[in-house]
């Protein structure tokens, strides 16, 4: 066990790479998901269908297959650049995250009750304004938790980047295992690292949820003493 921890500088370096990749792909997937979801909800049928196909096309082969293809096969096509392992990894995982995230964003928006947009229409509020002020703030209370669990998954996705030679914490741990033959310690350490990273990510998103307007309203309702009225809220919030 002691032998393993003598390697702490390389392990720390690997951990740093893992965190770096995870942060990049999570932050990159966010705008990607919003754009794809917007296309998915377009009023033009052709755009809707095309974006749905694109999303399924990205999700269908798993990230590993996409990663190997982007790293080994893509540069062989004429005019395509040779990607460094890190760039290929970030690119593929961001794309995958955007595709999964798009469905979360779309479902969140579609879950906002139809009556809300009807009410905006009756008040003469324009479509853009009603999306910005009414639909999105309510959809966020479903999108943020969904994105939180996606982000936790995405941290776990980063484990596959070691396949193409990115020196993340898994790559380094395998190296340490080869040096020390202390498999048990190395993998327990590795498991703990990933577990802590995903837990931290979960906490971050939990904190973010507290700031959302609809959740503020829910808390206010819970704080007020009239218990039966909470039922009214869940009805109105649907």
């Amino acid at each position: 066990m002691k032998a393993v921890f003598e390697y702490w500088p390389v392990l720390a370096q690997g951990l740093w790479v893992t965190i770096w990749v995870a942060v990049c792909i999570i932050l990159g997937a966010l705008p990607g998901a919003v754009v794809l979801a917007a296309l998915r909800l377009s009023e033009t049928r052709a755009i809707r269908v095309a974006s749905m196909l694109l999303i399924e096309l990205i999700r269908a082969p798993s990230a590993v297959v996409l990663l190997f293809w982007a790293f080994y096969a893509l540069p062989l096509l004429p005019g395509m650049p040779r990607l460094s392992p890190l760039v290929a990894a970030i690119l593929v995982l961001t794309l995958d995250g955007a595709a999964y995230g798009a469905e979360i964003v779309r479902a969140g928006i579609e879950a906002v009750h139809r009556g809300q947009t009807d009410a905006c229409h009756a008040l003469g509020v324009s479509k853009i304004q009603s999306f910005r002020k009414v639909v999105l703030p309510q959809a966020l209370s479903q999108i943020v938790p969904g994105f939180g669990s996606l982000a936790r998954s995405m941290i776990k996705w980063t484990a596959i980047v070691s396949f193409i030679g990115v020196q993340d914490v898994l790559y380094v741990a395998n190296y340490v295992r080869g040096q020390t033959f202390d498999t048990l310690t190395v993998f327990c350490f590795l498991g703990a690292i990933y577990w802590i990273l995903t837990a931290l990510c979960g906490l971050t998103f939990r904190a973010l949820e507290q700031l959302l307007p609809l959740n503020r309203a829910l808390r206010a309702a819970r704080a007020s003493a009239h218990a039966p009225e909470i039922e009214v809220l869940t009805g109105a919030a649907q």
């Binding site: 484990a159 590795l190 577990w195």
Partner: peptide, 18 residues
Amino acid sequence: ELFRGVPTLVLLYFTFYV
């Protein structure tokens, strides 16, 4: 909680080597 936080790949390696 364990499986939510640890990548399948790590669990696979763990089982395979331990």
